[in-house]
Design a protein around this nucleic acid. Structure first.
Lengths: 240, 240
DNA sequence: CGATTTATGTTCGATAGCGAACCGACTGTT
DNA sequence: AACAGTCGGTTCGCTATCGAACATAAATCG
């Protein structure tokens, strides 16, 4: 295995045979914060398997207001519309946490997908977990306070990061949640007073994850439970 | 063709060969308002192709509050998790407008799906259009007023109905949108004053659809445009 | 027919979040 | 060391929506 220790769960779940075919075409890339992997409506030429980066899928409105509809980390891939058949989507994919990813051309992905083997089954299940996340985001946007949503968002990010620190300003979080920056300042202030997090100029440390989960709405748990069900993470432990 | 004139677009788009295989197994059923096609988390045994009914996919929260995440009419099918691989989903499918549908057993659907032919391609594209709808619902919930959302909801329903009338109380609409009934009363009252709609105890008549579209947020158009792109509706006009 | 249920209308106060403006403090640069 | 830019904190008034309670009229049913 010639890639870094931080790997992508989807890729690692595949049988050795599929890996052998795909891995030569995976191109490691680094993704800086804020990079746009694809714009709404743009024909996508590649998919991206994050390894230690986090990508947000955002819907952007005419007036520029935005809202995150799902998050992708090393449990998934960016670009499902390629194999779903649409080739593009009305959302934007934005790097939310800098890091690395493995890039694969649309051509190679489809070649393997069209073999109708393990990759197809895996990617369809992954897509269903994305659907779950979007649906729950819709509900959360309707019913929950900024405070709760911030907790959800922190937990989703934390799950996709190695440590307890996020590099993320309140302004950026506000864009993701589709709320004002002041609203995030307020919510984050409360969490800091409670000792749940600690932050300083774009660095957020989560100090008490259990309490964060307690303060969160049910949406995080619903998504997590369903994702774990759909994608029980068992690396295909082939050493070859 | 031995079914009623009102047909399902997905089924009609399939090549004659696939239709020949599937149609013998389609079971016509009638769906009364309020019927639950499946409950959250329940293993699904059938999929449903609405012909002149409308089904809402709802996420229901612990406290009973709900929100519609997408709508399915004769352009689609209910039960994507069957072929996506999850077998169940955390949402509920509820009959929003009484009518008919064609029911197909999971077994038969999967049999055809696993041939990796036209049905697979079609259903994946349809699933992508569902994803679009959910994503836009999330954004709409975040950024738009009840007034705008009611317009969106009316348009989505109208597109899936033959005439201009909806059988639907304000209470039920409120459940779909995840808002209070009073909010819907208010919004509907405004639309009636403007002469856009006319309603009376559970019956809503849309009088001025162009104006309804003008009052609506962009979300309706985004979803419609993308759905038309993904599923250009060309019936396979075989007379056999 | 009268009684009950259902659908809609109205009001009241409370509150979450918005938009705009402004400040101060920290950071990195030259 | 001075500066500009970034990040976070605070304030004000405003509006959409909520929660609750109650009113009215139409539909349904005994």
């Amino acid at each position: 295995m010639h890639f870094s220790a931080q790997q992508n769960h989807l890729l690692m779940s595949l049988p050795a045979e599929v890996q052998k075919r795909l891995f030569p075409y995976l191109k490691p890339i680094t993704l800086p914060l804020g990079k746009v992997l694809y714009e709404a409506g743009e024909i996508q030429q590649e998919v991206f398997f994050p390894t230690d980066s986090i990508i947000s899928l955002l819907n952007v409105m005419e007036n520029g207001a935005s809202a995150e509809i799902s998050v992708v980390g090393n449990e998934g891939l960016v670009g499902v519309s390629l194999f779903m058949g649409g080739e593009s989507t009305p959302s934007r994919a934005l790097v939310q946490s800098a890091g690395s990813a493995l890039q694969l051309s649309a051509l190679r992905l489809k070649e393997e997908f069209d073999r109708h083997g393990d990759l197809l089954l895996l990617l369809l299940r992954y897509t269903q977990s994305l659907i779950t996340q979007m649906a729950q985001t819709a509900v959360c946007n309707r019913h929950h306070t900024i405070d709760q949503q911030l907790c959800r968002w922190l937990l989703l990010s934390l799950d996709r990061l190695p440590g307890n620190q996020l590099i993320m300003t309140q302004e950026l979080i506000a864009n993701m949640l589709g709320v004002r920056r002041e609203g995030v300042t307020d919510a984050a202030g409360k969490l800091q007073k409670l000792g749940v997090i600690e932050y300083h100029r774009g660095h957020i440390n989560v100090l008490d994850r259990p309490q964060l989960e307690a303060l969160c709405c049910e949406c995080y748990a619903v998504v997590k439970k369903e994702t774990d069900r759909l994608l029980p993470w068992h690396p295909n432990n082939n050493s070859g």
